[in-house]
Simulated scan of single mutants.
Amino acid sequence: MSAAVDPSRLSINQETIKQWSMTDLAAGCAEEGVTGVGLWRAQVQEYGVERTARLMRESGLTVTSLCRGGFFTDIGEAARARALDDNRAAVDEAATLGTDTLVLVSGGLPHGSKDLTGARERIADALAVLGPYAEERGVRLAIEPLHPMFAADRCVVSTLGQALDIAERFPAAQVGVVVDTYHLWWDDQAPAQIDRAGRGGRIHAFQLADWITPLPAGVLLGRGQLGDGSVDFKAFRALVDGAGYAGAIEVEIFNEDLWARDGGEVLRETARRFRAHA
């Protein structure tokens, strides 16, 4: 049995309370004593990058990650160049926000392609360019493996082992991985790969969401509140802590039922569930 989780490690990902504006998020977290937030680029850009950074600082909040960069798998040279430019901008935004972690969703198969190996190699090609750029700005690139159901359209990196196979081509200060329970809970190789990631200093983010069924249409919005599904969060935390990770633990839930509720109620419930289940 793992020790009780330190509640100060809780970070609320912005998507968990998507109904809140940026100012609501800052004020609500500050009021509830939550000191970490994970932000998303679209909302940051809408509010203003510098303005968001100032709001977070003034509210006493630490930005634990920025999501997302990535989408490196296009075949055409022009599209790949655009992706590199967009990811350089994402790195700059992360640096301005004061976070050292840019989460990468690597991209699915290009239209008409069935070449998973080639798609994964194009991810590595992009990281070879972006890794040094990010390191110069104090930002680490964190490859997030997504559940295999997303391999075709969203992320050809489906396991932590696949993510590490790419990340380990580069210094750990440049490229690491995200351990997300929603995407990895099913994988019997996850414990060994978490240990591998920890030994290499490559666990750059740890995210929680539960697996609930039935999955909704489109599957993307099927993440569950902590404790509502199949994931053993305490076991995952024991593995991640045992691998040497002592940083923030982000709760990142995409769920329309949560978004339809009062944001303060969702935040308080999430904090309670975190203390009970993480």
Rank of each mutant, 00 (worst) to 15 (best):
Y133C: 03
P132K: 13
E136R: 15
E144L: 06
T99Y: 06
E136A: 14
V129I: 14
R120E: 06
R122Q: 11
G118T: 09
A124M: 00
P110L: 09
E144N: 01
G131D: 10
R82G: 06
D86I: 03
D125G: 08
D85L: 03
A90W: 05
D85A: 15
R88P: 03
I123C: 10
A126I: 07
V105W: 00
G107N: 05
A95K: 13
V103W: 03
S113G: 08
D85I: 01
R88E: 14
R137N: 07
G112N: 07
V91R: 13
A128C: 01
L109N: 02
E136M: 09
D86L: 11
R82L: 12
G112P: 09
R88K: 15
G107H: 03
P132V: 10
G98Y: 03
R120A: 10
L127E: 00
R140D: 00
E136N: 08
R82P: 00
A126L: 10
P110H: 11
A126H: 13
L141K: 12
A124I: 03
V91P: 05
T99R: 06
R80P: 00
D100L: 05
L109W: 02
A119L: 09
G98C: 06
D125M: 06
L141T: 08
A142Q: 04
S106A: 15
R137M: 10
V129R: 08
R120Q: 15
A81H: 06
P110D: 12
I143M: 02
R88C: 08
G107R: 02
E144S: 02
P132M: 13
G107P: 08
R82A: 14
